[in-house]
Amino acid sequence: MIPINHLAVFMMLGFALILGLGLLGLSALLGRVKPDPRKLSTYECGVPPSGSPRNRYSIKFYLIAIFFLIFDIEIAFLFPWALIVKSQIPLGPMVIGEMFLFIALLLVGYFYIWKKGALDWNS
């Protein structure tokens, strides 16, 4: 039997989806439909669009995404650790040492990427 709290999450999701789709549908029903090529063309401050939007963009975005992934995984490990740290400390400082080693290794990487300039948006 599913606990009622989990059912609540699904219910909330369903409600939000119905709300969003309902609003979009209502607007599609009630809004006027008068397509005009100038209205529907891509916006570029009034002039015809020059160049394609499908260019290659800077690789800095890719680097930021990779660093975000790595630090997000680190934080995902920090979450359960934070939960038990208070109760496990009386049993010895080992649990702190493990996590500090984890963070230290990642800090090595962090300082490396800082020094290499991967965190500078200008270069």
Partner: peptide, 21 residues
Amino acid sequence: PFELTSLLLLIAMVGGVVLAK
């Protein structure tokens, strides 16, 4: 394995910088 994960993440960070820069 948990500590090894951090090593893996470190390798990924360094690898990303090497590839992109």
